[in-house]
């Protein structure tokens, strides 16, 4: 199949970027979206042009590194799919495909389609963990947890931190990401202990990074490749309000 591409090219964070036109003639429909970009880059390299830079790692949909804004949607047209799991069969022969980096006030373009998501790391470093060193893995049945509890916590823990929620939010809010981390730990007895201190610190960092307010448009859960529910945001709000009223409980 043949396709036309309009790809965001930008030298660095300071420079102004623009959409540049490319066309590819030998695209196979079983190629993944990233393989299609690899193909483009091979052609660019042979022509002596600078290849298009984009983030990718596992290409299995589990690491959250790849994230492109494809045809006006985060991770492209399919639901519950990260960019690497999107294939060219989802596009028509001769179609024009727009590819832009994920945008957000707290996400800077490093180059082309590559963005700086270190703001997520800084939010995590404020409390996305349990602070007690537990040594070796403890006996699994020592702390009783129901199957439903474990499943529910895992639904929140499934967040891969790709940033699609921020990219699709009209407010550039990181509420879905931050709340998934907070909720994941609040749902388990090991994490519950520090939940009040955690939510205050992580929300403070989220604000400091410059993310916007959540106005509950629910767009984030539609675009999340892991289908993280906005009920995580409700839970974060609950935990936050509780912590504000009761104190951080130390």
């Amino acid at each position: 199949m043949k396709i036309k591409l309009k790809i965001w090219r930008q030298i660095n964070a300071e420079s102004k970027g623009k959409l540049v036109d490319y066309s590819l003639d030998n695209v196979e429909e079983d190629m993944s979206f990233l393989e299609m970009l690899d193909l483009l880059n091979e052609e660019l390299i042979l022509k002596g042009e600078r290849p298009v830079e984009f983030d990718h790692d596992c290409r299995e949909g589990i690491c959250g590194t790849c994230g492109l804004f494809i045809n006006g949607r985060a991770h492209g047209p399919l639901a519950g799919t990260s960019t690497c799991q999107l294939h060219m069969r989802s596009f028509k022969d001769g179609e024009t495909i727009y590819i832009e980096p994920f945008r957000g006030g707290a996400f800077n373009v490093i180059r082309d389609l590559k963005i700086d998501r270190s703001s997520f790391d800084r939010i995590m470093s404020k409390g996305g963990y349990i602070s007690t060193p537990v040594g070796d893995a403890p006996e699994a049945n020592a702390v009783p947890i129901t199957h439903d509890q474990a499943e529910s916590a895992f639904d929140s823990a499934a967040c891969i931190g790709c940033g699609a929620c921020v990219a699709t939010c009209k407010n550039g809010s990181a509420a879905l990401f931050t709340s998934a981390k907070i909720t994941h730990l609040a749902k388990l007895p090991q994490g519950k202990v520090e939940s009040r201190a955690r939510v205050l610190k992580m929300v403070e960092q989220m604000d400091e990074e410059g993310f916007g307010h959540c106005t509950n448009t629910l767009a984030c859960q539609v675009e999340c490749p892991q289908e993280i529910s906005v009920s995580n945001i409700d839970r974060m709000n609950w935990e936050y309000n509780k912590a504000k009223i009761l104190g951080k409980g130390d």
Partner: peptide, 21 residues
Amino acid sequence: LKNKKSAGGGYAYDKRAKVSN
């Protein structure tokens, strides 16, 4: 005003209207 700033520029091609009311 804060949200406008946080949104960061917007997109050249934007179909986000499909995913919320």
